[in-house]
Nucleic acid binder design. Structure first.
Length: 541
DNA sequence: GCCGTTTTCGGCCCGACTGTTTTCAGTCG
């Protein structure tokens, strides 16, 4: 207890409880503060010690006081008071699809329902019939939603969401007349986890697109209108599709990419200058301004185009206004890929195939990583016998700090440390030859000390000038954007690996994660030529 | 509850869809 995540959770709970009470604007204010706290790169206690809590977007006097109470006492009296007023089951009711604060409150006040279980009983007893606003269809929907598995709403890891989205885009393209089709939402912003998918289409025949979308194998239609359709995949993931005219594409893409806070901020800017932005266009009174591209939308606000990965209302708008938006990492900045795994049974044929993939072929150097001595020796002989290609082949060795196997001196070009438990003694990075970095560093959701362990490794990397890795699986197998940003801002170096988890580099999820952390090419080692000589990479501080 | 180089008070993004409505409320994103 006492960490940023716990504080954010407390404020979200306050927001939910205030929703039940019918408060109009306070819930959003608490949620905004919670989102800001989640994206902080340091502990609240450190910000409080500097007396800078009010600098956090969405934190004013009242929430500052509550943060201090939370840091001091581990709880917030206001939250305790709300908890005493409202049965915990009421918040659970609002989690059910189709039930919002108004409905949950009515169940509570009109029917004495205090949670999902008593709601089921009330429906079975026919007590919803005759309640104004509740016809047979609505009652059936509530009953259905109560029976549905709650796990349906779980957020998916970025990589899983990206793959599903890619499949759906291909499915639609293959069977409907699509002009433009793009992913929006948190997937486009490369959030570490994705709650649902948003897909945007322009087409002259929207009916055909909606039909094709609904025909996705295993999908069930949640709702369908003339321009909007929502489905749930066989796996339970919700996917929204919107069809807009091509002249509205920029406005729609900007709008559906979010984030919510970013949209509120941009729309406020628009209002300040007498404009109105909706998902169809920027309007000045009755006059429609150019809205076909995102750049046009931002231009109407006198802003440069803002990369989607940093659209979180965490300073990007101010930076855009000041002309100080960071130059973010691009896939084309990466000169090397250093984490192609060697799987059991792999041989030269497969390695050559990986090298021949269109993305890898553009690189200057590629590193294959072995974790068994037999693999290492097979790799070595392949590299020796191989006729020299354009791409330099490097051989790496991956092991845990406690591993007993050790490659012969001079046989490896670099070493990858796979974290296992707490950071090792500093000597660990001195074993063997060549540069060392930490790969596969993430948080095991089962590990309650995961966040602490991550932060220990980040500190260790900084202290010993050891690079950390960003991968397409932030959180579970690589730094998340916040950790990467914190590390880079403190002077740490990064390895950005798209291929750690397979050869498909095309989605750019590792680069996206780095961009989300406001990271440019500067701290990224594999955006530099491979180091020459026998020195460290980067040099020790 | 937060916020402000037009504001320290009066705003707070805004439209699609559904179900129950004779004109709109609630939910959702």
């Amino acid at each position: 207890m006492g960490g940023n995540a716990d504080a954010a959770r407390a404020f979200r709970e306050i927001a939910d409880l205030l929703d039940v009470l019918g408060e109009k604007f306070k819930p959003e204010a608490y949620r905004r503060a919670a989102r800001s706290i989640d994206s902080l790169t340091e502990e609240l206690s450190a910000v409080a010690a500097r007396d800078q809590l009010r600098e956090i977007p969405g934190v004013g006097q009242a929430i500052e006081e509550k943060i201090r109470e939370f840091l001091r006492e581990g709880t917030i009296p206001y939250l305790e008071k709300l908890r005493r007023e409202i049965p915990p089951g009421i918040v659970a009711l609002m989690r059910i699809s189709g039930i919002g604060p108004k409905t949950a409150r009515r169940f509570w006040t009109d029917l004495g329902v205090d949670g999902p279980a008593t709601l089921v009983a009330a429906i079975d007893a026919g007590r919803l019939e005759g309640l104004s606003g509740f016809g047979p269809k609505k009652i059936a929907k509530v009953r259905e939603a109560l029976a549905a598995a709650p796990s349906d709403s779980r957020r998916r890891p970025l990589r899983e969401a990206a793959r599903v989205a890619q499949e759906i885009v291909l499915h639609i393209r293959a069977g409907a007349p699509v002009d433009q089709i793009e992913v929006a939402g948190s997937l486009r912003r490369r959030r570490e986890t994705v709650g649902d998918l948003d897909i945007l289409v322009t087409s002259a025949e929207s009916e055909k697109v909606l039909d094709r979308f609904a025909a996705l194998p295993g999908a069930t239609i949640v709702l369908r209108g003339p321009t909007k359709e929502t489905i749930r995949t066989a796996d339970g993931l919700q996917v929204d599709l919107r069809v807009v005219p091509s002249e509205s594409f920029g406005a729609a893409w900007q709008y559906f990419t979010g984030s919510k806070d970013h949209n509120i901020a941009t729309r406020s800017l628009a209002r300040d200058r007498g404009l109105k932005i909706n998902e169809y266009a920027v309007m000045r009174g009755e006059e429609r301004l150019p809205s076909a591209t995102e750049a046009e939308i931002y231009r109407s606000l006198d802003l440069p185009w803002i990369p989607p990965e940093i659209r979180e209302a965490q300073g990007e708008i101010e930076a855009a206004q000041a002309g100080t938006l960071p130059r973010l990492l691009e896939s084309s900045d990466l000169l090397g890929e250093l984490h192609l795994h060697v799987a059991p049974g792999d041989g030269p044929e497969r390695w050559e195939a990986q090298l021949a993939s269109p993305v890898t072929a553009k690189l200057q150097y590629v590193g294959f990583v072995a974790s068994e001595l037999a693999q290492l020796s097979a790799l070595r002989s392949w590299v020796r016998e191989r006729t020299v290609g354009r791409v330099a082949i490097l051989v790496g060795w991956e092991s845990t700090p406690s591993s007993v196997d050790s490659p012969p001196a001079g046989e490896v070009d670099f070493r990858v440390l796979r974290p296992e438990g707490p950071p090792p003694k500093p000597e660990a990075r001195r074993v063997g030859t060549g540069p060392v970095w930490v790969g596969h560093l993430g948080i095991d959701p089962e590990d309650s000390n995961g966040a602490q362990r991550l932060s220990d490794w980040v500190a260790w990397g900084l202290r010993h000038s050891v690079a950390l890795e960003v991968t397409p699986a932030p959180f579970s197998e690589g730094l998340d954007a916040v950790a990467a940003r914190k590390f880079a801002e403190a002077g740490g170096h990064l390895i950005v690996s798209e291929a750690t988890l397979g050869p498909d580099r095309s989605l750019g999820l590792a680069v996206g994660t780095a961009r989300r952390g406001w990271i440019g090419p500067g701290p990224v080692l594999n955006a530099r030529p491979w180091r020459t000589g026998s020195g460290d990479w980067p040099p020790p501080k």
